Structures are given as C-alpha cells and as structure tokens.
Simulated scan of single mutants.
Amino acid sequence: MAYRILIVDDERMLTELLSRHLQKCGYITFVAEDAEQAISMLNTYPDLILLDIKMPEMDGLELCKIIRSNVVCPILFLTARITEQDKVNGLQAGGDDYITKPFSLQELTARVAAHLRRDERSRCTPKIVSSQGLIVNLAERRIFYGETELNFSNREFDIIEFLMSHASQIFDKERIYETVWGCNAEGDSNVIKEHIRKIRNKLTEATGREYIETVWGMGYRWKK
C-alpha cells in the first residue's frame, strides 16, 4: 500500500511541485495551504507530514503541537530558518527533522524515505476524525479544539462520535438513543435532548461554533 504524505505550505507553486514529484515516486499526496485545512485533513491518516514553519495566521510550530497531540507520524519542517535555536524550537514542538530551503528533490525524497522506514514501528496511528477545527481521537476517546482538550461524559462522547461519523445525516432521538444506549436499554429517548443541549453548550463555549443542527420535526445532524 502506498504511503500517504500531507504537504502543508502556503506557497502553491512549491506544494504543486512537491505533490507531483512525490506522486511520481509512488506516494499518495494531500495538500493544505493553511492550518485549518491541515487539521481537516488529519482524517486522511497521513504517514508523514511536510510542514512549512512560516505560514499566515498560525505558524508551523503551533500547528505542529496540535498535530502531535493526535498523530504519531513523522513531521518534517520545510523552512528557510537555519539557526540552532530554530531547530531546537521545532524539535521541542514535536517535529522530527528539518529540510532547509532551498533543497533538492533528491534530498527531500531521501529524507522522506528514511523517516518512513524508521516509522514502521509506529503503524498504530490512532483513528482521528476532524470537523471545523475540532479533533476527535476515537482510539483514546479524547476531543481537542486547538491545543485545548474538551471534557465530555461517556454518553456525550458516544453521541458526538455517532453524529460526526454520519455528518449531514439526520437522526431522530429514538435512533440516537438505540445506537448509544442499545436496543434493549430501559429508559426514555427524551434524555437525548438534554445530552445534546449539554454537548452544544460545551462546544459553543470552547469554540464559538455550532456543530449540531436541529432539523425541526426530524431530529439532529452534525454540520459538515
């Protein structure tokens, strides 16, 4: 199976060049031009990430910390910075290596291959689902917005996981109750309304965004 490489850089000409070259080398590539796009692509399960340090809004060091909280694949910084302190900062942020611009495609290919070989020991990457800056680590049952971890009860997490996994689909409270509590559960599906309210309050307080939409007379759906 071909390795998946995520390229994160706001220089479109560079990302197109790297993407074409790596595809010729047999890799599957994904491209992001900023931090938000990069986070949204974590659910492509990249085997390696090429990450530019100097980007608008959120720089690569800050983005690396967010990615590293959820993904264990190698992260290689692409940068024109070459000072020792810059390298220290990058390694402390969770990066694995530096490739200094300008670089040859031969050098980049060799480093990518070397890190992928070394990373064979960590093929157990947790399953990640992301939406509008929200990152859900399904394996560890943890939810993050940026570097901040959000706290949810087990039932709340189960509801979030179910709705996110079927984004844009509408489910009535009876279907949600049966899925989360089980078909033979003794109780009232009206508890779903209260759980949804609590989830919304926590998400809105942390992110300022609405993730769950009420479709009147039909049920709830996760905004895609």
Rank of each mutant, 00 (worst) to 15 (best):
A2N: 12
L134S: 00
M218R: 15
H195R: 11
L138T: 09
K65H: 09
C25A: 12
F162G: 09
F103L: 07
D59F: 03
M58E: 11
I199Y: 02
L134F: 00
Y177H: 13
G95I: 02
R209P: 06
P56R: 13
Q23N: 14
L76H: 04
K224G: 09
L76I: 15
P56Q: 12
G182K: 09
I39L: 15
C183W: 14
E186H: 10
C183H: 15
G94R: 07
Q37N: 14
V112T: 02
D52I: 12
G133T: 01
D47K: 10
V191R: 06
E84V: 10
S189E: 13
R4D: 08
I99C: 04
A2C: 07
Q85K: 15
R121K: 14
Y211S: 06
E149L: 02
R200Y: 09
G146C: 02
A35F: 05
G95Q: 01
E174S: 14
G182L: 08
S104T: 09
A32G: 07
R155A: 13
T44Y: 12
E120L: 06
N43Y: 11
F77W: 08
G208W: 04
S131L: 04
K193F: 06
D9L: 01
H21M: 07
R4V: 05
S122F: 11
D188A: 03
R81V: 11
M218G: 05
V71H: 08
V31K: 11
D59T: 08
N89H: 13
L105F: 04
I66S: 02
T83C: 03
F30A: 11
G133N: 02
I28L: 13
L78S: 04
E84I: 09
M13N: 09
E36L: 14
A139E: 12
V180F: 07
I75R: 01
L108I: 06
M13I: 05
L105P: 00
R209F: 10
N190F: 00
I212A: 01
R4F: 05
T179K: 15
E62C: 05
A167P: 06
L163G: 03
K87G: 04
R117Q: 06
A80V: 12
